[in-house]
Amino acid sequence: MEKELRDQAAKLLEEGTVDYIVGFASGTLKHTTTPLITGDKDETSSLVINPFISNNLATYALEISGRLGIVAKGCDSRSIVSLIQDKQITRQDIVILGIPCSGLIDLKKVEKLAGKERDEIDEVVVVADKVVITVGSEKQEVPAAAVLFDHCIGCELQIPQEYDFLIQGPAVEIRNSEASREKIKELKQMSPDQRWSYWKQQFNRCIRCYACRQVCPACFCERCFVEESQPRWVSPVSQWQDNLIFQAIRAIHVAGRCTDCGECERVCPVDIPLRSLSKEMYDLVGEMFNYKSGMNAGAPPLMTAYELTEVESLIR
């Protein structure tokens, strides 16, 4: 897959079809990758495809001017489509290099299984539907589903629908929507009081770094409501109540745009289980409006389009 991707990317740059390629290269730490943004065709030889390509590169489409060739997994392609629907980017400026995806590895799960931190783990290799974890001379084989991200287990689009080039490769069926809602199920079983104190504890440690917002392609506001001071919707002081309100409002703002890429939760430096909020919102949107974000570039965006037959007079 990598070779085909590299060749295609180099060709796009060489022909001048795109100004930049946005893809993944190996990271500087074990089991990491890093976004590669380049206009140099020689650098396309460092493009990689592996189970650690976590970033949702659609975020960069909002920022970089010029025509972009973006490497996109299914979820990323949905974010791109969603941005096109919202007229944040134009389809003509984007060349989607779709790649099939069999799920990404959640290092937190691997750490838990191995009882070691990520830099102490030598190798994490996917072999079909199994993952082999190597620590020193010890090898441990686990079902892939046990170490994939929750959002990957719930993936509804392993092969991008919207693309200009589709890199050929396997996409091992990984879908288990029940398992991908495991944490949410646990939360729902709690009493409201228990749930309240659970979230209180989680948001107590939020440091307001806004990484969740910054990685999110659906968070494209020029000026976020948390930065408004007149009126001030949320206090800039990091207190659990305001931290919670920030996430609650963010979840509502990205409803109909969130593609459950899971980035918000992955990047959180203090491990707040943010996907429990965003995935619940995602499923609610599906139930209430029969809408899946980023599946159809031609469809009107859920929250910003209306029809004269709307029930709500407020909108009509």
């Binding site: 890093t34 943004i37 440091i207 307001r208 770094c209 990484a211 917002r213 910054q214 990047v267 430096p269």
Partner: peptide, 24 residues
């Protein structure tokens, strides 16, 4: 280019000291 302008590196840096003052 690839920086996403979040506050992680500065907040977790042991020598970053910048602060904000706000009233409630």
């Amino acid at each position: 280019a690839k920086c996403i302008s979040c506050g992680i590196c500065t907040f977790l840096c042991p020598t970053c000291f910048c602060f904000d003052i706000n009233d409630e």
